[in-house]
Write a protein that binds this DNA or RNA. Structure first.
Lengths: 344, 344
DNA sequence: CTGTTAGCGCTTTCAT
DNA sequence: ATGAAAGCGCTAACAG
């Protein structure tokens, strides 16, 4: 970087004090109009831009927030970061972005880096590996406002979470109401509360509907990837394990399941109904278009950013954490049968 | 933020000078072993972390790079940022992320914010609106290394671009070789060099194949969105405009075209072959799976970050810009007919 | 209306 | 082996 234009340099060129330049630039009325004009003119000429570092150091405030997300390439997270960025941009905050790559070690490193940069606050989504939360608690102890998104965890902080239980409940209920007799659930990693919640919603819907479930209906689907689900479902079919509905922990798994069902010459939704989770971009375009539970990632991002900014600006030293549950929405497409509404 | 632990505080607690503490912490051999141990012990106890702001100010180096991307939610860009982040993380750099939302005004604002933060370098992809490049040139004049990704532009800077011309050429050639007689091209915004290149590749392939093209084969498809392409193609079919191949400027448009073709009861690929561009996640899962030109977003991100870091660390004041063209790859799926190789 | 001074947290030269 | 002092760029209290 070439030599920067600084207040000092402006002052020297104009033969006045730096403090005068500083004041003139912010239109302080104590400074004479003429001086203000002279200063601003030169500043524009030399393309002066204030050094945010010096300002931050001075103010002990960086106007920067940190964001830690597991994987940027996942559609859901990309919508979250997009939401965050839109809000912070409008409030003239900047975002330092870190991706933990689902690694605890990297997440810890991210926390440290963000603290060192003295970000004014942090929005984070824990990695799949995270079972210890000391690095987040350390942040809080250092007084940095922290808001979690999406994946639940035991830290006593504000959170924007998705109504996983309800989303799963709604999806399962729909399958049941539309006539499914035996539904399997492709479950996600059990250390993620989200996986548990979706499983619990699945179970609860059965219970309320008066249908017993057995453990064979819950099938672990490791990382919830397409190929895993494909293998699992193909296996079930080969073993003549019968089912007429699938509720998958996410859309990728649902797509794998769909392919497996179709490759066994079973029809979707006539023979098997399938519901995914997340409403990935692809869902509407596969064949048949996938019924799924929509999670509002963008909204989660904006809400998280708004909440964080609010907490950052709060005068209180102690802030009661807020937990905001964002409702999900069942998007009906053609991988499920049509439900004849009988209202009452 | 609560009171920070600073060098000064450590020094006070230990009854020594801050400069000694500073040195001890970095294992300066001029400091006695005992002092070093004492200092480090207290630093660990109090959870001391250096203030990156102060360091940056002192060193005139922030170990931070800025990234400006049009839209984070697009799969391609999310892979780019992911690639960038992985490289910078491994080199202990941080990323300040901005999304321009395809707005020139916002892009200008992003440039300013990044400069104010005194980032050590910038990676940017111009917005669709950008036709004036002064804000980028200003950055260069201030001596900030700049690397562009993906969308070509006239600024004299290093660039990692995708071989759009060749990608389009390959795709078109495949259609031709597999028997298409009349192919239409759904073209993108013409102010984007990428759109022009893809169109030129389309034309060149015809030319080399000895097939004349007329302007009716090039159909403007505004923003290249799914619904636009759907309307356009449906219209063409209704007007009995004949074609047996479609090369779309991107996958979204290709999907729209596919739906339109199918809804007119034409078969893909038997009646109409379709090729998209970008290899979005959805491509493999729609029906039929879409043949597309794969762009290596992640690799583009890593390459851009590596090049930027290299330029940042160069001692030379003037650096000859490098233009790296990343080859594309035609991913054959089922929206195109199978080509019988005749390796003459 | 403007200048002087101190200090944000850190490193580094120069003394001792 | 350690300390004092200056300075990175900026602001704000204080002085005049």
């Amino acid at each position: 970087m070439k030599s920067q234009v600084t207040l000092k340099e402006l002052a020297r060129k104009l033969g006045i004090a730096t403090s005068t330049v500083s004041r003139a630039l912010k239109d302080n009325t104590e400074i004479s109009i003429e001086t203000r004009i002279r200063v601003k003119k030169l500043a524009t000429e030399l393309n002066y831009e204030p050094n945010a570092l010096a300002l931050s150091l001075r103010r002990s405030k960086t106007y920067t927030i940190g964001v830690i997300l597991p994987e940027l390439v996942h559609f859901f997270f990309s919508t979250v970061i997009s939401g965050i960025e839109d809000v912070t941009f409008s409030k003239e905050y900047n975002v330092i972005l870190c991706q933990s790559n689902e690694s605890l070690e990297r997440e810890i490193s991210n926390c440290k880096a963000l603290f060192n940069h003295r970000v004014d606050g942090i929005i984070a989504c824990i990695s799949k590996e995270t079972t210890n939360y000391n690095h987040f608690i350390a942040l809080q102890e250092k007084g940095i406002p922290l808001v979690f998104v999406d994946r639940e965890n035991p830290v006593d902080a504000s959170k924007i979470i998705s109504g996983d239980f309800n989303g799963a409940y709604d999806a399962t209920q729909y399958l049941l109401k539309s006539g499914c007799k035996r539904i399997i659930h492709l479950a996600g990693p059990q250390n993620l509360v989200l996986s548990q919640e979706r499983m619990n919603g699945f179970l609860k819907a059965h219970q309320e509907y008066g249908i017993a479930t057995d453990e064979n209906q819950i099938v672990r689907c490791g990382g919830g990837e397409t190929h895993e689900a494909f293998e699992i479902v193909r296996n079930l079919i080969e073993k003549k394990y019968l089912f007429d509905g699938i509720f998958a922990v996410n859309d990728m798994a649902a797509v794998g399941a769909l392919k497996a069902v179709q490759s066994a010459k079973l029809r979707v939704p006539e023979d098997v109904s399938i519901i995914g989770y997340s409403d990935w971009a692809l869902c509407a375009f596969i064949s048949p278009p996938l019924t799924t539970v929509q999670q509002k990632g963008y909204e989660m991002g904006t809400k998280a950013a708004e909440l964080l900014l609010k907490e950052m600006h709060s005068k209180d030293t102690f802030i009661e954490p807020s937990i905001i549950v964002l409702p999900t929405k069942l998007i009906l497409r053609e991988s499920t049968r049509i439900l004849i509404q009988n209202d009452h």
